[in-house]
Design a binder for these strands. Structure first.
Length: 591
RNA sequence: GGAGGCGUGGUGUAGAGGCCUAACACGCUGCCCUGUCAAGGCAGAGAACGCGGGUUCGAAUCCCGUCGCUUCCGCCA
């Protein structure tokens, strides 16, 4: 006999009269003494089971009384329309119930260490992770897994329909000199040698372009041995993709089309909607000027304003700087001195020299603190430029370093956005950030460093600047930002050897060194590399946003904790002496 | 590597120097109950308050250290 003829989510009035077999977990039990109700749960839903002595044997009823939460049971019974007024509109199957004739306990269960049948309780996460297989039974987590599945399935269908080829690349990869710290895998066969787990399939996907694949993608696992954040896991999943004979907009269109269609087609599942259609496009420079962060949350405004000119020649010492900018915290004039002091501390921590606060009352800026020191003309200018209204709080900072000023205010804007919950939880505010500067000067090391990676192509018109003014060279690089998170990054790559060599020269990399580190790439590029470029959207981060989750762990079945450990599996763990010997490894636990 | 937050029965919380021989809710155990769906009623078991040290006549409550979890900075080409 089959374990189940139907799932617990599919029965309805059309099935009334049918005899069905269901199997699943006891979600909840309501024992009225004479009649027992069981909410039977499987992945597909919940169905009410009724155990009534009038319709079954004494033994079955006794067995029903012994049921507890999370017992795995199988029932045979008849689908019946519920009595008038007894329907449950909260359940998809709420118009019917199954009257049990036969009941079997397939497996009893210990009492779970935490509540599985109530998502409203915020459960301590370390316990959830310790018993992740139970945590995943909960409705919210089951939904997150489903959203992720739909997303990945959609990606495959969407790209397949557009001629992309899914190709797997090795997990046992090569240690690369730059970038994130890597996870190393010792080789048994080659004493003293190591594989490295890929930070991303970057180099391999470019080699696939040389190989003539033209349109490649992969749901790729990536590994980075860096410290964790809410949006960073040591292993994570990227939609890695690369295209030949394309320029920037071709790549952008693929990703934008994919995310637009997914957002709209699956709105019933995730409940999100697009804030910008088409996605907003801004240059890095404009984003920094207006929002002070290369990954701004554009679900709300609160743009930075610039009063530098109006403050020129001010007698107010804190504003005697090249640049004076600020932002308006709408409706925050009720903030106390303590709260604004906190904001000042926050701004300082993020590089501001200080924070000037103006309270906008009914009759203008309050006459205390900075409000008392600024001239009427200056206050009027700030009011006009900032557009502040009574009830608002105006926050200003000054600095000779414009970028530092933008960044400090940008972090302040972000912090306020979080504290004031300015972002609409149902909105997805996708933004393309374009025209990044390719290089920054590392003062400590006295050399130019690449902001993206070595293979990013400079914009054509900036090529001459490579030798004359590297700081002004912009790259064919692009980031996709959503709700304050970087959700994708990519670039058009250099495919011409001469340009590649000029970039390497600028970065102080000799041809000899370059060949040592990237020989396989440079060699491949000499065999007819097509113009190509790509991008890598973060599957975990996007799923997190679609799921409305506060961190990546919520959308990964078995995530690592902040210490990169899994307490359920007890990893990382030590290994036997024998294993170490085979790998030619001696431990030095002192250092 | 650094900074902040949290750590009380199985779970979620309350408790802010003596009223704590630690409270409440859920869960758990037993009994009652034929229409509930967060079922209901009655009874009961279960924690010396992460760990160590200190202050005090007295500490879950204050201080120091330590461990665990978490958020952020550094780091993440």
């Amino acid at each position: 006999m089959r374990y189940k003829t139907h799932t617990c989510g599919e029965l309805n009035l059309a099935h009334v009269g049918h005899t069905v077999t269901l199997a699943g977990w006891v979600h909840r039990r309501r024992d009225h003494g004479g009649v027992i109700f069981i909410d039977l749960r499987d992945r597909f839903g919940i169905t009410q089971i009724v155990i009534n002595p009038a319709y079954t044997t004494e033994d079955t009823f006794r067995l029903g009384e012994s049921l507890r939460n999370e017992y795995v049971i199988q029932v045979v019974g008849q689908v019946c329309k519920r009595p008038e007024g007894m329907e449950n509109p909260k359940l998809a199957t709420g118009e019917i119930e199954v009257i049990v004739s036969k009941l079997e306990v397939l497996n009893p269960s210990k009492t779970p260490p935490f509540v599985l049948n109530d998502d409203s309780i915020e459960q301590d996460e370390s316990v959830r992770l310790r018993y992740r297989y139970l945590d995943l039974r909960r409705e919210r987590m089951a939904r997150n897994l489903l959203i992720r599945h739909r997303f990945v399935k959609f990606i495959r269908d969407y790209l397949d329909a557009r001629g992309f080829l899914e190709v797997e690349t090795p997990i046992l990869f090569k240690s690369t000199p730059e970038g994130a710290r890597e996870y190393l895998v010792p080789s048994r066969v080659h004493p003293g040698c190591f594989y490295a787990l890929p930070q991303s399939p970057q180099q391999l996907k470019q080699l696939l372009m040389v190989a003539g694949v033209e349109r490649y993608f992969q749901i790729a696992r990536c590994f980075r041995d860096e410290d964790q954040r809410a949006d960073r896991q040591p292993e994570f999943t990227q939609l890695d993709l690369e295209m030949s004979f394309v320029d920037r907009d071709d790549v952008l269109e693929v990703v934008e089309g994919l995310l637009t269609e997914f957002t709209e087609r699956f709105a019933d599942l995730h409940g999100k909607r697009l804030m910008f259609k088409p996605f907003l496009r801004l240059s890095f420079e404009e984003v920094m000027e207006r929002f002070g962060r290369d990954k701004p949350d554009l679900r709300y405004g609160m743009e930075l304003f610039d009063v530098s000119e109006a403050m020129r020649g001010t007698s107010f010492v804190p504003f005697q700087a090249q640049h004076v900018k600020g932002l308006v915290a709408t409706g925050c004039a009720h903030f106390t001195r303590k709260q604004t002091d906190e904001l000042t501390e926050f701004a300082k921590k993020n590089g501001a020299r200080g924070l000037i606060v103006l309270w906008h009352d009914e009759d203008g800026y309050r006459n205390s603190g900075a409000g008392a020191k600024l001239s009427d003309a200056e206050k009027q200018a700030i009011m006009t430029i900032s557009g502040s209204k009574p009830g608002d709080l105006v926050l200003l900072a000054a600095d000779d370093d414009r970028m530092a000023l933008n960044e400090a205010l940008g972090e302040l804007r972000h912090e306020l956005g979080l504290r004031l919950k300015l972002g609409d939880p149902d909105a997805m505010a996708f933004l393309w950030v374009l025209d990044f500067p390719m290089f920054s000067y590392d003062k400590a090391e006295q050399r130019w460093v690449a902001n993206h990676h070595l293979f990013t192509a400079p914009q054509d018109e900036d090529l001459p600047l490579l030798e004359t003014d590297p700081g002004r060279v912009k790259g064919k690089q692009y980031d996709l930002v959503c709700n304050g998170y970087e959700v994708a990054g990519g670039s058009i790559r250099i495919h011409r050897r001469d340009v590649q060599e000029r970039v390497m020269r600028l970065l102080g990399l000799s041809l000899e060194e370059a060949y040592k580190k990237f020989g396989h790439m440079l060699e491949a590029f000499e065999y007819g590399a097509p113009p190509h470029g790509g991008i890598a959207p973060g599957v975990d981060r996007l799923t997190m946003l679609y799921a409305g989750a506060p961190n990546l762990r919520e959308v990964i079945a078995f995530p690592k904790n902040q210490q990169a450990a899994d307490t359920m599996l007890g990893i990382p763990s030590s290994v036997s002496e024998k294993q170490l010997r085979e790998l030619h490894i001696k431990l030095d636990l002192e250092s």
